[in-house]
Simulated scan of single mutants.
Amino acid sequence: MTDTLAAILLGILEGLTEFLPVSSTGHLILATELLGFDQREWEVFNIAIQPAAILAIVVLYWRTFWDVAKGLFGLDKGALAFVRNLLVAFFPAVLLGLAFGDVIETMLGNAVLVCWTLIIGGFAILAVERWANPPAEGAGVAGVPLRTSVLVGLVQCLAMIPGVSRSGATILGAMAFGVDRKTAAEFSFFLAVPTLSGATVYQLAKYGADLSARDFELIGIGSAVGFVTALVVVKLFVTIITRIGFAPFAWYRIVIGAAGLAWLTLR
């Protein structure tokens, strides 16, 4: 397989899984393992294409971001609460990422760990679906209490373990703390902007000097494909969770994790 085709496939996988509660990082790790790629060679690529998914969120929710930006200039309480909630939820990941960055990078090559966290995370989703009782509607991200935003930020830190899923942790965590499904999903989408941007900037600052022109070309290809894919997936995802819930994603995680363990054991 050519590296161009590999970049396209991984870009599609990133766009498909970044905002679903199935772990995009876990899927990219398993994909590189399945395809026989060197994990270290594609590690920076897998992180560097994440801004494409961020751009998809900005495009899909441009009006929200525009309204918040205008509101900040007018010191609108809703806009200030929106930004406050995202910042306090983002801050724990910054601290933990800086403190344990090397440990986290070591785990990124562990496909067995990914499989186990996919399975455990699947059962966790089923548990939250069964016992959490969020309201049918909420007041949006700006209406989420400060304490809840902090708790969501702490839960997001679990996603530093590959296979946990950042979107899954934040969405299900928010629901467990009493946030309605739609707001929980949008909180996760918006929180991805500073979180994934920060992770990408950190990785490129650390390894960017070692990347070749071809590496940046592949990152561009993967990013373009991931952006288009994410545009389609996000809207569909919101429709699915509001009508059906998260159980299909939970069972998917369990099946993929179990299949991955079997393959890694028998290969």
Rank of each mutant, 00 (worst) to 15 (best):
A258G: 15
W62G: 11
G74M: 11
L236A: 08
R166G: 07
I119T: 08
A174M: 01
E129V: 05
V128G: 01
R253K: 13
V94P: 13
G97W: 01
K235C: 04
A258Y: 07
C115P: 12
S24T: 15
V233M: 00
I54S: 15
T32Y: 07
V94L: 01
A209N: 11
L9K: 14
S188W: 04
S188Q: 05
L191P: 00
P248G: 03
E43V: 13
G260M: 02
R40W: 04
V83Q: 01
A31C: 03
T229P: 13
C157W: 10
I256W: 02
Y252L: 00
E129W: 02
I161C: 09
G208W: 06
F227S: 06
S212C: 04
A192Y: 09
R166H: 06
A52C: 05
L95N: 11
G101H: 09
G140N: 06
A69P: 01
A124P: 00
I49F: 07
F227N: 00
P134L: 07
G78S: 07
A111Y: 09
R181E: 13
S212G: 05
A174N: 08
A205E: 11
R130E: 10
Q50C: 07
V103W: 11
W131M: 03
T64H: 06
T195E: 04
V22I: 03
A99Q: 04
A124T: 10
I54R: 13
A247T: 15
L218V: 13
A176W: 12
L20T: 14
K206G: 11
A127S: 15
S167Q: 10
G97Q: 06
M160D: 08
G153I: 08
T170D: 08
G208L: 03
F73T: 10
A6P: 02
G163H: 09
R40H: 13
I161V: 04
